[in-house]
Amino acid sequence: MRVTVRLFARLRDLAGAGELVRDVPEQATVQTVWNVLTTEMPSLREYERTMSVAVNADYSRMAAAVHDGDEVAFLPPVSGG
């Protein structure tokens, strides 16, 4: 199945793109998507312990299941205001 990955702020800069499409196995979780990304781009790993994740524009967890067509976002620590 296929998911859209969204990356923001410095994560986007490190990846060189804010939106990527990736094929992941059935039964994949957010963690699976992250593993696919960081295998490709190991520099993203520095955010593993500080980032937040979202599925279809709602906060989620690494263990959450993803489905075909989902949008999975990885978010560095926020700095609004």
């Binding site: 906060y59 978010l75 560095p76 620590p77 700095s79």
Partner: peptide, 8 residues
């Protein structure tokens, strides 16, 4: 890029 809190 400024980074503050891990959003949760």
């Amino acid at each position: 890029w400024l980074e503050g809190a891990t959003a949760d």
